[in-house]
Amino acid sequence: MGTRHRVQLTVNGERRSGDTAGRTSLADFLRDTLGLTGTHLGCEHGVCGACTVLLDGSPVRSCILLAAQADGHDVRTIEGVSPPGGPLSPVQEAFCETHAMQCGFCTSGMVLASEALLATTPHPDDAEIDEALGGNICRCTGYVQIREAVRVAAARTADDERVVVRD
C-alpha cells in the first residue's frame, strides 16, 4: 500500500481535514471524504472542466490535483458560492435567468470559473469570457446562454466595490 497523508485545508471558509492515500485526487477527497458532491467528475483527465474548484481563488482542475498537494491551501467549491438556503450569488441567479444550464453536470465548474473571472475582471468582454470558460465543456445548453449569464452577472455586480489584485 502507498503512503497515507493527513490533509488539512480550508474548504468554503471552514477548516477541514482527513486522512487519505497519496494517489487520491482533490476531487475524490472533496466528494468521498468530505461529502461535498457538488464537484462533478466528467473526464478525469483534465479536459472537460466539470471538476473546476478555486484553489486560493484561482480555477483549477480538481481531478488532476492530488488532495495532498492542496494541503494547507484554501479551496472553494460550488457549495461555498452561496449560503445554504440562499440567496444565490449573482452568477448563479444569472445562470437561472438565461437558461445557462440544462442537465447541470457542467454547471458547478462553469459557475466557479465565472466567479473567478468576475473577481479579477469585473467588466469582461466576450473574448475574456470565452478565454475564462473555454476550457469548460457543456454538452447540453450551448455556450451562448452561458456567456449571456456572465454578461448579466457582470452588469449587476459591476457597481460593487472590488479590489483587483494583480502580480
Partner: peptide
C-alpha cells in the same frame, strides 16, 4: 501534474514513487 496526472489516471504511467517538488 497537468500532464503526469492524466497519464497516471489512465495508468499509462505506473510509478512506484512520486516526488512532489511543489
Amino acid at each position: 501534474g497537468q500532464s503526469l496526472l492524466p497519464l497516471l489516471n489512465f495508468r499509462l504511467a505506473r510509478p512506484a514513487h512520486l516526488v512532489d517538488v511543489g
